[in-house]
Nucleic acid binder design. Structure first.
Lengths: 338, 338
DNA sequence: AATTGTAAGCGCTTACAATT
DNA sequence: AATTGTAAGCGCTTACAATT
């Protein structure tokens, strides 16, 4: 069942049939109707692969994510799709599980599928070389969420400096003097930037981050829990802690509960990402919100622009300002929790 | 940069070059090395689209998900990928946002991309006709997680009857007499099956579900919260409630807290899905676990088998038995919370 | 002038023939 | 007998020619 069958059924040439499918104005209304009727009658399904080969464009974009199970990335993925679908693109999704070697494989596989462009949340410990094949083959690409040291490519991500300052300032306003930045991948640029921003703001106030609690971790609630329990064996928590993610904050809060520290007074907690459940937790979690879905949309839009304007377009960087969603865990008592 | 270039560089024909890429044993080791060296030297990237057209097989499978932001489906997606990737498949992902019309579009789009098979978590209110185009065009497909009334297709999903009984029995063992099934899409088969199973088991004990709390809802913590708050205005909660999802349970627990009901004593709560944060919540959430990742793997495997054995294979149905992960919210006090 | 058809080609694979 | 090459074709699109 190919276009040739449709053409035969409608009594026109394959060329004409193709023109009506592509909605060309060159074909007479009568003929158009006839062809469309044949498509319907035969239940013809367009072969986009064949068309892509001929047109040298697949209308497919690759999305490489470091960990889909993280709701932050799931949201981002939804944003990407929302933006790309209406524009006629289809997304090829792949998960690296934060493994750089796997990531290299996936990028290669996507290139073999002739993607028109690539969106990537790079694995935390990516080697800077992962973009080389993309650049060499002129595949438009944009990185999002995570910056990798040494990689120069277009980028859409959160302003980590601003985010960390927002949280730090709020805690200082609460009168806290001992602050820590808890968790996050050790060499991740995000963690490094946020810790630096926090330290800078603290320094302006004659303070410095609590070293024993300013430690890296993997990003999950169970990791946050385990690490917090260990630290709590050696003494009480600092007055306030900013967590690298909401998941880590959930783990930390559970650990604090276990040892009888009251959250918001005994220890002020702020999370990062403003995940859906932050609101339902008790106490509800104050969190730095970076609007994952919006970020996905912006990144997708930037990629499309780069695909349209090939070669010429200079590398660009879009940084989104986060906001602080204030709830209870920092010690505030909002009039209504919801 | 095509295979022809590689062949020219290596001084062989395109046919030979193709044979070495496809790892045919027909070509001499020397020639093989020469071609591989040329591939390397030229930085050649295989065009899988062209090969697919010729071979009439794309090694691509479609995955249509009703809502990726739900961590349950994100896990499932990871399971699917884990299984499919090593087998040489690439997954085309699409999100329906539970919209049947959008779902129909996506399925069509995937068929145009010549997917070798389709895995689908159907939108809750899917029309039974959504499989027709797949069947008509002989596209192997398997449904997972959700069963749609009137649709006959291969399926991998949880045993909702067993899951609901597990939770109900546990609550009965705690001495609870007033039980409710809280939330979930009104016409969803899962909710209907679970409520029926619960009612059956209760009937054996001379009881019936608490009607005022056995109500449908959308699946999110904020919906669970809102609905619970509304019900709590009219009186105290039942002795025990099984929630349609962990997210709903989180919302419910928050609402109970707000009005001063102690969870586990004033009201026993059991969730469904055993999401990661169930463990970190306080109290930690007892939940019916259906192992989303495993389900994804099984569904992927079934699909691959159906692709290998075309036509012949009869429709099949694989049902996975869930387990009850007992924590604190039901009133148990496990020796260690983690 | 408006509409439709011819023919080549996108980058591969593979049956079969040809060469050593 | 072992290895390599020839040529056709997968299902489309599109420049250009041909027809009315």
């Amino acid at each position: 069942m190919t276009l040739a069958d449709v053409a035969a059924h409608a009594g026109v040439s394959r060329a004409t049939a193709s023109l009506v499918l592509r909605e060309s104005p060159l074909v007479a209304e009568q003929t158009r109707q006839r062809v469309l009727a044949s498509v319907e009658a035969l239940g013809y399904v367009y072969n986009r692969g064949a068309a892509s080969l001929r047109m040298r464009r697949t209308n497919t974009i690759g999305l490489v994510i470091s960990g889909l199970a993280n709701p932050f990335f799931a949201d981002l993925t939804e944003g990407v799709e929302e933006e790309l679908r209406p524009a006629g693109y289809v997304v090829l999704l792949a998960n690296t599980f934060d493994d750089p070697a796997h990531q290299d494989m996936l990028i290669r596989s996507m290139m073999e599928h002739q993607i028109d462009g690539l969106l990537i949340v790079a694995a935390v410990d990516s080697d800077a070389g992962f973009v080389t094949p993309l650049r060499n083959n002129g595949v438009p690409h944009v990185m999002t969420t995570r910056r990798i040291r040494g990689v120069h490519a277009s980028y859409v991500g959160p302003d980590d400096d601003a985010g960390a300052r927002l949280a730090t300032q709020h805690l200082l306003d609460h009168g806290a003097r001992e602050l820590a930045y808890f968790g996050g991948p050790e060499h991740g640029v995000a963690r490094i930037d946020r810790v630096a921003a926090m330290a800078a703001l603290l320094a302006e106030n004659g303070l410095e981050p609590e070293p024993s609690w300013t430690v890296p971790s993997r990003v999950s609630s169970s990791e946050g829990y385990a690490m917090a329990r260990k630290l709590l064996e050696h003494g009480p928590p600092p007055e306030a802690v900013i967590c690298h993610s909401d998941a880590i904050a959930f783990g930390l809060m559970r650990a604090l509960r276990d040892v009888g520290v009251e959250i918001g007074t005994g220890c002020r907690v702020i999370g990062y990402d403003d995940v859906e459940h932050a609101q339902a937790w008790s106490p509800s979690l104050t969190s730095v919100s970076v609007a994952a879905r919006t970020m996905g949309r912006r990144a997708a839009r930037m990629l499309m622009e780069r695909i349209e304007a090939p070669g010429s377009s200079p590398e660009e960087s879009l940084v989104l300002r986060p906001s602080l969603v204030v709830r209870e865990s920092c010690g505030c008592r909002p009039s209504s929790a919801h």
